[in-house]
Nucleic acid binder design. Structure first.
Lengths: 234, 234
DNA sequence: ACTACTTGCCATACGGTGTATGACGAAGCT
DNA sequence: AGCTTCGTCATACACCGTATGGCAAGTAGT
């Protein structure tokens, strides 16, 4: 115990820092998380560097290592902080509540576009915020006021399937790679040449291509998943 | 046209490099992509640096900028190369073919765990490999030998929903954050303390928690999505 | 054959990154 | 008083992406 043991694992396994609570300006881990989230929301995940987060707090980069072993642990804190503020699912039946979960999660991704890339890194552990988040989800589907009673393993299957769909949806930014360029002639030209030049018969019509890239049908996809859950689990 | 115009956009918009084809060792863009893919498969996406990719090819970092404007463009090439080798979907009906698409994509993610994080970066364009990949998918679902005829926008909806589910599934590595630690007493301790300490009633039983983290039910989730497509589109 | 230009590669340099090491004052306890 | 712990910091190192400019070899024009 003479020198600090380097966990090099999850933040949540670090021995808890008990701030003196009396003097000097000492931060909580959540302060670092808040600064990181603000930075990432504003300038993207790549803008989150130890030096910048530290500057945001008015200290230097190396001071952060008092609260955290590693930059990855800081990201872990950011992820947990964002999950902690997720609302509880609302609705009168399982379908409404699962839809609520899906929509809330989509909004999370819209508010924090970096989240999908920070989430679930290997070697991380669910923090208190994420555990509470999961607890809310499980509770929403096992609430006795909800009509059909589900086996526990099917609760996680239902939530997981919805979450997988939403995460996958959030992974492609701005829905359709083309949206920012829509109508740019150079890109139409490229696509036309590529499709025609390689004999891609099924993509022939550019209108069809546009569709492939551009469409934004989150609600339809979510309905499909909910229909599938209805057919298989309820 | 005196100096090189910096596109700072997609690789596919770069004026095509016409290799002398005669002398000196000149690479194709695909050679860079192959080196990058090999590196990422072996050591992860963070290990893909300009210097290392260059070393893999026996040249220096700056030489890569002859073939590519930016490291992001190199990643774009890697993504396209991986998509180009995807197999054509097999099966006798739409359901089998969509399942084939889902399973092939899952295998892609298993073989190239970095792919999910490299895919769909803003400002990128679908390359020839990805276009061919999409063409194969559209073809698989519009093949006249397949029983129900689908509206074009529903073809993309079906494929997109399956892909979103699979991508979301691939996003959490090693299925369940806990797998690598399974049974590690320190982690059981942490989880128990966290759940009990915060009064997370729905997560009370550790067995349940285990389930939440550990389960690997890709096939069930895919079946759910396919059921939903059946209910809504067919 | 001489020139002019293009191609492919490289050396150097700059500002940024994560973090290892060790020092430092201030506060608390004995 | 002395000692320990807390929180912060300065310095340093290896690595990163890439801007700039140079250089040898091959091609094209005359």
């Amino acid at each position: 115990m003479t020198t600090g043991e380097r966990t090099h694992g999850s933040v949540w396994l670090r021995p808890a820092r008990t701030p003196r609570a009396a003097k000097g300006q000492a931060f909580a881990q959540d302060d670092l998380a808040a600064a990181g989230v603000a930075l990432a929301d504003r300038d993207g995940l790549d803008a989150v560097s130890m030096r910048r987060v530290a500057a945001e707090l008015g200290i230097t980069a190396m001071s952060l290592y008092w609260y955290v072993d590693t930059k990855d642990q800081l990201v872990e804190l950011m992820v947990d902080r964002v999950l902690a503020e997720q609302p509880v699912p609302v609705g009168d039946d399982w379908r409404a509540r699962l839809r609520s979960i899906g929509c809330d999660t989509l909004e999370l991704h819209r508010a924090h576009p970096w989240f999908v890339h920070a989430q679930g890194r290997p070697g991380t552990l669910p923090g208190p915020g994420q555990l509470r988040h999961w607890d809310r989800h499980v509770h929403a589907l096992t609430d006795p006021r909800i009509t059909p009673r589900l086996a526990p393993e099917n609760v996680t299957l239902a939530v997981g399937t919805v979450m997988n769909f939403v995460s996958g949806y959030a992974l492609t930014p701005a829905r359709g790679v083309l949206t920012p360029y829509a109508g740019h002639p150079q890109i139409d030209q490229y696509l036309r040449d590529a499709v025609l030049g390689h004999g891609l018969e099924s993509l022939r019509s550019l209108a069809h291509l546009r569709h492939q890239f551009t469409e934004d049908r989150f609600d339809d996809g979510l309905d499909i998943v909910l229909d599938g859950l209805h057919a298989r689990l309820f």
